[in-house]
Computed example of a mutant assay.
Amino acid sequence: MPQHCAANFCSNRRTVDVRARGITFHKFPKGKELRKRWEVSLRREEFTASDSTVLCSEHFKQEDFDKTGQIVRLREGVVPSIFSFPAHLQSLENCRTTETSIKTEAGLSVASRDAPETCRSHPQPQPIDDHDYALPASLTGLTAKLKEALARVEHLEREKTNTMAREERAKTTVKSLLGDLSEKQLITEELKEKLRLYSDVQLIEFMEKQGHGYTKEHREFAFTLHLHGPKAYKYLRETRKFPLPHPHTLQK
């Protein structure tokens, strides 16, 4: 399987066609400190290079190469510096190449006096996952991204369902139905005033109770409505399909 360049937004792979264009590929250094500087230069969140991870030659300056032999090699200690970062990952060019800034980006503790003044006044923005459109280099990384996206979609769907349920519950309060019953002349003004005492009662909870464990407010509302407005009670049960107790249940 052809090796991919590890840099974000770089599509170069180690193939015959790419090599024909003069592009070479170079493994990450074995030295811990230099390898860390390479990793930081890519600005990929939580990225760690393996012994087989490579960068293509398009991310190095011409002076970084030693072309005196038959094989193109990188000079000792060079760090990749040519990338096409999105706006939120860009920072001052002169901050990238200093050892102090590289250690700072890697989270190491370094004396601030070693860093250029322009670098200290412009801290590097942190990557934002929502705007990182580059696909991971490995299948494992791509699978993880997909699972993360699916989990977020599922979370948003639950939020949507919960919001719709809250809206539906708000529409099923006694207060929201009084106007409807009045317009249909199913209750008198006197009964309407009595029912205002239960204006915050959620009628949908009758369904949740399934005939058991009604609160005192639910029982009083049902009794009051059925006693003084049997037509309104029937309208809510049969037309609006609210699961109010059957009149026989009330008599019991």
Rank of each mutant, 00 (worst) to 15 (best):
D17V: 10
V18L: 02
R19K: 12
R19L: 10
R19M: 12
A20R: 03
R21A: 00
G22C: 06
I23D: 01
I23G: 07
I23A: 05
I23C: 03
H26D: 10
H26G: 11
H26Q: 11
K27I: 04
K27W: 01
F28C: 10
F28N: 09
P29G: 08
P29W: 00
P29C: 05
P29E: 04
P29A: 10
K30E: 15
G31F: 00
E33W: 10
L34Y: 02
L34R: 02
L34W: 02
K36H: 05
K36P: 06
K36Y: 00
R37H: 14
R37F: 14
W38L: 01
W38H: 08
W38D: 09
V40C: 00
S41L: 04
S41T: 00
S41G: 04
L42Q: 03
L42R: 05
E45G: 05
E45V: 08
E46A: 02
E46I: 03
E46H: 15
E46S: 15
F47R: 04
F47G: 06
F47S: 03
F47C: 05
F47E: 05
T48Q: 15
T48E: 15
A49L: 05
A49M: 08
A49N: 03
S50H: 01
S50Q: 08
S50T: 13
D51Q: 14
D51E: 07
S52W: 09
T53S: 07
T53M: 02
V54Q: 15
L55R: 11
L55Q: 11
C56N: 03
S57P: 00
E58C: 15
E58V: 13
F60S: 00
K61S: 06
K61P: 08
Q62Y: 12
D64F: 02
D66W: 10
D66H: 06
K67C: 14
T68L: 04
G69K: 13
G69E: 11
Q70R: 11
I71A: 13
I71P: 04
I71K: 15
V72M: 05
R73T: 15
L74S: 03
L74F: 11
R75P: 03
R75A: 04
G77Y: 02
G77E: 08
G77Q: 05
V79Y: 09
V79C: 07
P80R: 12
S81A: 09
S81Y: 02
S81F: 03
I82V: 12
I82M: 12
F83P: 12
S84I: 11
F85N: 07
F85S: 11
P86D: 12
A87F: 10
A87D: 14
H88Y: 14
H88F: 11
H88N: 09
L89W: 03
L89E: 06
L89Y: 07
Q90A: 04
S91T: 13
S91D: 06
E93T: 10
N94S: 12
C95P: 00
R96A: 10
T98A: 11
T100F: 06
T100Y: 07
S101Q: 14
I102P: 01
I102M: 09
K103H: 06
T104N: 08
E105Y: 08
A106Q: 08
G107L: 13
G107R: 13
L108F: 13
L108T: 03
L108W: 14
S109P: 09
S109W: 03
S109E: 08
V110I: 14
V110H: 05
V110W: 04
A111H: 14
A111K: 14
A111W: 11
D114G: 07
D114F: 15
